[in-house]
């Protein structure tokens, strides 16, 4: 039986030939932890290291961004934004009237949806184990001896 990681490597060569359409956004970063590693307690938020990043245009949809932000962990969002150098103008905590703050919502729309990481890595804050992001997809698979 192959390990998941070995299996993932089989795909790698294949992926490198694909033109990427969509890549990792901060929304995804908010959903990821390294706490499946056996010694890790929180593993959250992960440090982002960026090798290749791009900006895309996404239509602003107020309802979508409001709903999204309400579901996200603000601290992790802010931390992620700092990692990729786009935290300017974001408050330390989400202000009370944020749903009606157009300027803030547009800023959040930009940082969450329009900045994409194509290549880089995510680092566990506790063990410093790195997870690669290649072709815009974070790979969180672990070796059997890490679980």
């Amino acid at each position: 039986m192959k390990t998941l990681l070995q299996l993932s490597n089989i795909f790698h060569d294949r992926i490198n030939t694909i033109k990427s359409i969509r890549n990792m956004k901060l929304i995804t970063h908010n959903m990821l932890t390294s706490n499946a590693l056996k010694t890790v307690k929180e593993g959250y938020p992960l440090q982002i290291y960026v090798d290749e990043v791009k900006q895309v245009d996404v239509d602003f949809q107020q309802q979508f961004i409001t709903k999204t932000v309400s579901k996200l962990n603000w601290k992790a969002l802010l931390f992620g934004a700092k990692c990729i150098g786009h935290s300017e103008g974001l408050p330390e905590t989400l202000p009370e009237n944020w749903e009606s703050n157009d300027e803030l919502l547009k800023k959040l729309h930009h940082v969450l949806l329009e900045i994409e990481v194509i290549t880089g890595s995510l680092e566990c804050p506790e063990t410093k184990r790195r997870f690669p992001i290649s072709n815009g997809i974070p790979n969180m698979l672990l070796n059997e001896d890490e679980v």
Binding site: K25, N30, M31, T33, N35, A36, N73, L113, I137
Partner: peptide, 29 residues
């Protein structure tokens, strides 16, 4: 990667990541 492409071509925003089940999703989520 392909799943994101499928979603994108059909006007859906789907974000994917490579992991076993939902092992890399934080407990809070």
């Amino acid at each position: 990667k392909k799943a994101e492409e499928t979603a994108h071509l059909n006007g859906v925003t789907l974000k994917t990541f490579c992991c076993n089940f939902v092992d890399s999703v934080p407990d809070s989520v």
